[in-house]
Design a protein around this nucleic acid. Structure first.
Lengths: 230, 230
DNA sequence: AAAGACTAAATTGTCGACAGTTTTTGCTTG
DNA sequence: CAAGCAAAAACTGTCGACAATTTAGTCTTT
């Protein structure tokens, strides 16, 4: 169902996906140096494949590489979050506008159905909605834009970094039902083919989301600082 | 001067830059299959380096790769141009807004000086302005946004593809002086720290630019069709 | 003559080894 | 004991060879 198009046909693909998962979920923590030799033994593949995987991770903005020195997992910072969400707001706002224009009636019907499923889950107090549900919602709208460059930039370029922030800061809490309501408004605008409104609502939605994460991140940074100065 | 930060420290870098240049300038024409073995002999490096270069070219949206089949140079199409410029309009508009907010006074002074140099060239009827001047102008504003993700997406992600369209369709003609005037207005808005206006002017500027290229591209497509049906 | 199956050639995917650079270690010297 | 230098260890960069897959060609069959 989710990101189903990403089946690994090649061993390098597989290594890339494994590594990406480990980084996003914090199994390899932020800021860590990535040793090619170490990873090649750990994942039981040649160094060449690890190198290729790291290159792709760099393209995904999940690691930073310096020539002759090596690659590090990016570190999460309040400034980085702001920069990331500025771009995300612009691009996903655009995606919503284009989706209102380019999605087929069938696709919009599917989107409404997805929303219905989520509603049932939220009502039952399931936490499932948090990760997969939200990602799936945004994923469909991004795809609905039908703009290849936009899709590529969001899905390959920044989306897994967004997920990394969200997962590692443990998103949960009172925003769930609010976010669901925002989703509903966006879908309504798209159903009405009102691209302008859809864009504005999406931008707001992402802005709120950023504020929510930023507060957690600042809290975390403060805690770390306190711990270090003790 | 231009893109000076891109010095090749490694042989893979060098191969990447060489290949990219060849593709952007049409020396390797659009749609061509890229054979790894062939390129490795041509550029006198190992296949591994060619592979890495091709991977990076894929990240730059200049080639498309399929597993076990190979890589092709992208082909230029009216639809592709529209999609590309939709994204570019959004991102560079945002860059202009952020630049008005984040550039230092010194950087803005430099930008004004750059404009002065271009004015002299345009007045003298030099064609130099076309490529380097325009690219340099946009380059500075992108950098002025101070947003790493935005910079990376534009410079690594789409800018060389933009150049590929421009170079291969032979941009020239009456738009030069008009474009210069648009540049001047944008710089003025940035100097006044008016981000909103800067964004709007930049979006318009790019929209005009798109229309200019699109007309040439459609002309080309028509010619090709005519030639094929003869 | 067209379609299909099998074989051979060519191409991409993967690997282990060597070369060059950076980092560490330990020694020397002021 | 600190600072600087030198050797060595560890790491990244590059290469050529082998494996797996795709493509081209040939033969067979209807």
């Amino acid at each position: 169902m989710l990101f189903q198009t990403e089946q690994s046909v090649t061993a390098a693909d597989k290594t890339f996906y494994q590594l990406r998962k480990a980084i996003v979920e914090g199994e390899i923590s932020a800021g860590t140096k990535l040793s090619e030799t170490e990873l090649s033994t750990k994942y039981a593949v040649s160094r060449a494949l690890v190198r290729e995987a790291i290159n792709r991770l760099e393209s995904s903005n999940l690691v930073e590489r310096k020539a002759n020195i090596g690659a590090r997992v990016v570190s999460l910072s309040p400034e980085g979050l702001v920069e990331l969400y500025q771009v995300r707001e612009s691009l996903e706002g655009m995606a919503a506008r284009l989706a209102a224009q380019n999605m087929t009636d069938d696709e919009i019907a599917d989107l409404n159905q997805l929303l219905g499923n989520h509603f049932a889950e939220v009502k039952d107090g399931q936490s499932y909605y948090q990760e997969a549900g939200d990602v799936d919602f945004h994923y469909r709208i991004i795809m609905g834009s039908k703009n290849r460059h936009l899709i590529s930039m969001l899905l390959n370029g920044i989306y897994h970094l967004v997920r990394m922030y969200r997962v590692q800061l443990g998103m949960a809490g009172p925003r769930v039902t609010t976010a669901f309501d925002e989703h509903r408004q966006i879908v309504r605008a798209i159903s009405n083919r009102d691209g302008e409104l859809a864009e504005m609502l999406m931008r707001r939605h992402i802005l709120y989301s950023k504020n929510n994460i930023a507060s957690k991140l600042e809290q975390l940074s403060l805690d770390q600082h306190k711990r270090e100065t003790l």
